[in-house]
Design a protein around this nucleic acid. Sequence first.
DNA 1: CACATTGTGGACTGAATGGTCCACAATGCA
DNA 2: TGCATTGTGGACCATTCAGTCCACAATGTG
Lengths: 194, 194
Amino acid sequence: MTKTMSRAGRPRSFDQQVALGDALDVFWRKGYEATSLDDLTEATQLSRSSFYAAFGSKRELLLHAYRRYADAFYADMKTLADEHEDAKAALRAMIKALVDARPDDRGCFCVNAIVELAPSDPELAELGRAHIQRMCALLEELITQYGTRRPLARAQAATLMTLTMGSAVFRRALVAEDTLKSVQKQALGLLGLT
Amino acid sequence: MTKTMSRAGRPRSFDQQVALGDALDVFWRKGYEATSLDDLTEATQLSRSSFYAAFGSKRELLLHAYRRYADAFYADMKTLADEHEDAKAALRAMIKALVDARPDDRGCFCVNAIVELAPSDPELAELGRAHIQRMCALLEELITQYGTRRPLARAQAATLMTLTMGSAVFRRALVAEDTLKSVQKQALGLLGLT
DNA sequence: CACATTGTGGACTGAATGGTCCACAATGCA
DNA sequence: TGCATTGTGGACCATTCAGTCCACAATGTG
């Protein structure tokens, strides 16, 4: 159909992945609605035309950003799981990573996006559920690896995920860091990891 | 300073509390930024002038709504606590109420507001922390009433609160209801309430 | 060098935003 | 009844919004 020969044209003056990262950062801090196109073009250093050529629209960009964040998050956890031989050690490391995080008010990008947009954007809601489910599955698998039976492991994984998202809300409100630490300890106790 | 005599004037044609409730409902469903003044005047049936006379501004209205919701929430939990002689029974009822809720995508108004606005509105963030703290204190007190020692009770209360807020995120994304049920069971187990 | 092709700056647009203002309505009191 | 006072409808305002458009820039190819 399309001509395949003779492509040329002016080269891009920016790295799309870098720009996506910059945009993600703005959405993460300010939320979707509160982020204006001027915010985005300033953060990415793109002109409006380049911006729309690269990302289509504000909403599409958010979906790109969501996928990018969620995939990176999952990949990090999977790496953490693979690095440890012992499933218990892996879970300890993951709980530490999940609940620790940076003590700023950014929280978790997924949580922020879901809370702000899920009811009005079914596509994003679906991405959210998919991410939650795959995280739960990863946790569940790990938990079974040291003898916990399937239905209990599933419940524990869901609980761990719930704690993670709740902690993200706590962090968004800058609740005292000690509180998060004690929740973390309780999470370890719940799984029988002393 | 001000004249105290002779007040009269046209009477209000609406109930401020009802209007506040209607506005709260819109904020709850759509979030703050996505709610326009037209949305609010339509939901409350107020003209713009009455709206501003009654509530000052969109942001002030949100703060009113937040206080109203948080106070009602706390009052409900306290009632639930007082109704039961047995602290364990009270906690069981509270966990049921906290995690059950309606199976729609509204989530928890406090969680929604904190996640969307806390970083950009320190006053609301403070309201959020205060609400969390008083809820935790209530839970902690109940937990100590059947013999759990103070530092542990505090950690358990914080964990319960974290689970509650995480569940609200789950609900916002319409995660399967069974998942919430199993999290609820885990919460009971955590407190040793079989 | 000429041309096709792709990228870019920034002016521009119509719609929607939160908020103001004022003429008029409805009350109590003298 | 007339006046002071408070409430209300809705026109109006400046600003900001997401998105479009086009003249021009920068490349590869012939």
